[in-house]
Simulated assay, not measured.
Amino acid sequence: PETWSKIAKLFNYPFLYGRGLDARPGIMGGGAMEINTVPRFDSPDTQGVVYSKIPKLQFPVDSQGRAVLVQDVTYYSKAALYDAFKAWRDGGPPCSGQFNMKAAWKPRLTTHTPRYDQAGKPIAGVEQAFDTRVFEGNVWGVQWFTNNISPKGLFPQYFKEVGGKRVAVAASDVPAATGLHQQEFKRADRGGPYTSPNTGAWTRPGPKRGPYTVNLIDGSRVTYWWYRFIDQPSLQQYAWSEEKKARLQALVEKIHATWPIDRDYMPPPTRGRLATLDPALLVTPPEGLEVGYVPIVTHQAAQ
């Protein structure tokens, strides 16, 4: 809540006040996959007809041409975790952190054919390549069809402007005169090293112990320090009283002491496997800092 209030004040945008979940309930609508701005090349053929090309967008598909995108959708009421956690915070019995499935509801998913646009014009023909589906088991995803536009798992990459629309076409239907087949999208540049500031919130109150380093599988080396939870830099922007900070620190220490990392707090997925993390990202607190302390990265660079 404090963060949104700061943003509203900074940009003189009072609309944001009182719109957090601390002030009003949230309404969950439909799911979405946001791609944001998609770069493209536009080029005319010898007749002046405009063709376009977008980057390759590939989905993992099974042997039946299905891409599973959403599963196990569950809504939880306050009784699932909030009530027990708040009671624990206020001196009540310990809270395990596990969601109470008796306070959960699994909705029946529905779907419809999405709309797409490009350069302010509607896109047509994508539905010949794939469409959204609700599969068995209340699973939402995309079903690819046998088509002449794009292989299964690939979003159409080429389009032709026809009658105010951008129509999906096969790569073989794009005239060589457009030069689009040879056009390549620039790859992202490797970022420079990250180093945190050595003043302000990073040093006052500052870390308890460090530095420590770990090598990641992406080829970078990370430097981190151990901060008391309430002393971590991101929390120093708030004008909290010493009493409030002490209460929050005490609550975090109870969580660290009683909630192990090898417990299922939410039900595991009904199908598939969870993504894994680089094992090097799971660090062990040094002796004496097992409870109430967190690792904060201060530097990352290529090895």
Rank of each mutant, 00 (worst) to 15 (best):
Y13G: 01
Y17F: 14
G18V: 01
G18N: 10
A23E: 09
R24F: 00
R24P: 00
P25C: 11
P25I: 01
G26S: 08
I27F: 04
I27G: 04
A32G: 11
E34D: 07
I35T: 07
V38R: 01
F41D: 01
S43L: 05
D45G: 03
T46I: 13
G48D: 07
G48E: 06
V49D: 14
S52A: 08
K53W: 01
L57M: 14
R66S: 11
V73P: 00
K78T: 04
K78Q: 15
A84V: 00
F85A: 07
G91K: 02
G91W: 00
F99S: 07
K102C: 03
H112D: 09
T113E: 11
I123H: 01
A124S: 05
A124M: 04
G125N: 02
E127W: 00
Q128L: 06
A129S: 15
A129I: 00
D131A: 07
W140A: 12
W144P: 00
F145N: 03
N148M: 07
S150R: 00
K152L: 04
G153M: 02
G153F: 00
L154Q: 03
G164D: 06
K165G: 03
V167S: 10
A170P: 06
A171R: 15
P175G: 11
T178L: 04
L180F: 11
L180W: 13
L180H: 10
Q182S: 08
Q183L: 03
F185V: 05
A188H: 05
D189I: 12
G191V: 10
Y194N: 14
T195Q: 14
S196L: 09
S196D: 04
S196T: 09
N198F: 10
T199Y: 13
G200A: 10
G200M: 05
W202E: 04
W202I: 07
T203S: 15
P207K: 03
R209G: 02
Y212T: 10
Y212W: 14
T213Y: 13
V214M: 08
N215C: 06
D218K: 12
R221K: 09
Y224S: 06
W226R: 02
R228E: 14
F229C: 06
P233F: 07
P233D: 12
Q236V: 01
Q237A: 10
Q237R: 10
Q237D: 15
Y238I: 03
Y238F: 10
Y238R: 06
A239Y: 05
W240R: 01
E242W: 02
R247T: 11
R247P: 02
L248Y: 15
A250W: 02
L251G: 06
V252R: 06
A257K: 04
D262T: 07
P267I: 03
P267M: 12
P268F: 03
P269A: 12
R271Q: 12
R271T: 15
L274M: 09
T276C: 10
V283M: 12
P285N: 14
P286D: 08
G288H: 08
V291T: 08
Y293I: 05
Y293K: 06
H299S: 14
H299N: 11
Q300E: 02
Q303W: 12
